[in-house]
Simulated assay, not measured.
Amino acid sequence: MKPIQFDYPGGHIDGLEWGEPGELTVIAVHGWLDNALSFAALANQLPEIHLIALDLPGHGLSSWSPSGYPIWTPAEAILWVADQLPQSVHWLGHSMGAAALTLAAGAFPERFASIVLLDAIGPLVQSPDQAVSTFRRYASTSVRSLFSGYSTPEQAIAARLKATPAVTPTAIAPVILRNLEQRDQRWWWRTDPALRRPSAFRLTEPMVEDFLRAMSVPALAVRASNGMIPEAMFCARFECLPMAERLDLDGHHHLHLESAGAVILARYLNAFWERTK
């Protein structure tokens, strides 16, 4: 594992790299408040893959976005990285990363060799009659915080586990530590506080379905049995994908962080990428 960095307007996108160029290359993008290390367990099960996991803007070691974090911000970051690669490569996205991939690959399918969507198909949506209330909630929420830091990294891990109790401490700890920095004897989040601000606007369901229908690349849609995507929504959106396979796995939303989940997932991913070379 070694660090890697890409140019990004006004800053940089950092990441981690496993394997060597020349092997099949996969770029992985994480979920909300995670970072590149969320793919470490999976990378260990993919020794034949050249895997690059990114810190999306505002996460991990990457630069913050001055324009906030609507879902098109990580989608644009994905396209920015894609432009710096010598050829179209395979992409893997989890949660928010998967949602951003559907926008990027729907708009520019020619830049992607294949897409894996891990427990997400497209972004969260709103109905047209929710636009006013959604914007009102956004405008009423300040990015200021009374957060005073943690005495130890263990306190940060405990706080994260309250929000994602299904994940084991061993699995989530490296991800959290990459999102922390020490200042004045305290531990603070590196992540941009603006990430926690509500969305000003969201796409509607018909808009998301249009992006999915335009994803004319081989895709593997993975649904976790105890994940976050309702079966009805997953099925409806899956039907929009023109070149997709579906995979159902036992586990929670972050199953790829756990060693057992990574072993099982890697087997299916290797087979999928072998078919889409």
Rank of each mutant, 00 (worst) to 15 (best):
S225Q: 14
Q130G: 07
P193C: 01
L56V: 00
G60L: 12
H254G: 05
T141N: 12
A236E: 03
D55I: 10
G106W: 12
R111E: 09
L79S: 06
R111G: 07
G11H: 08
R190I: 03
P70W: 01
W80I: 15
W273K: 03
F147W: 14
A120Y: 06
G122T: 13
P165Y: 13
I121T: 12
R190E: 03
Q155P: 05
L103C: 06
S65E: 09
M243K: 13
A219Y: 08
T204D: 08
T141A: 05
P109F: 04
S88L: 00
F135A: 14
P198I: 14
G106D: 01
S259F: 10
E48T: 12
V175L: 06
P9T: 15
P21N: 06
H90W: 11
H252L: 00
A262I: 02
L103G: 04
H252E: 11
W72N: 14
F39W: 01
R202P: 07
R213D: 08
V143M: 06
W91R: 02
R197V: 15
S199L: 15
E20P: 04
G261M: 05
I52D: 04
F108L: 13
F272C: 03
E76N: 10
W80Y: 13
D7C: 04
K2P: 06
S145D: 10
A77G: 00
T164K: 10
A166K: 08
S145M: 08
G106Q: 01
L42T: 00
A75V: 09
P66R: 13
W18T: 05
I176Q: 10
V167P: 07
A260E: 15
D83E: 11
Q84T: 03
A36D: 00
N44H: 15
S95H: 05
G97C: 01
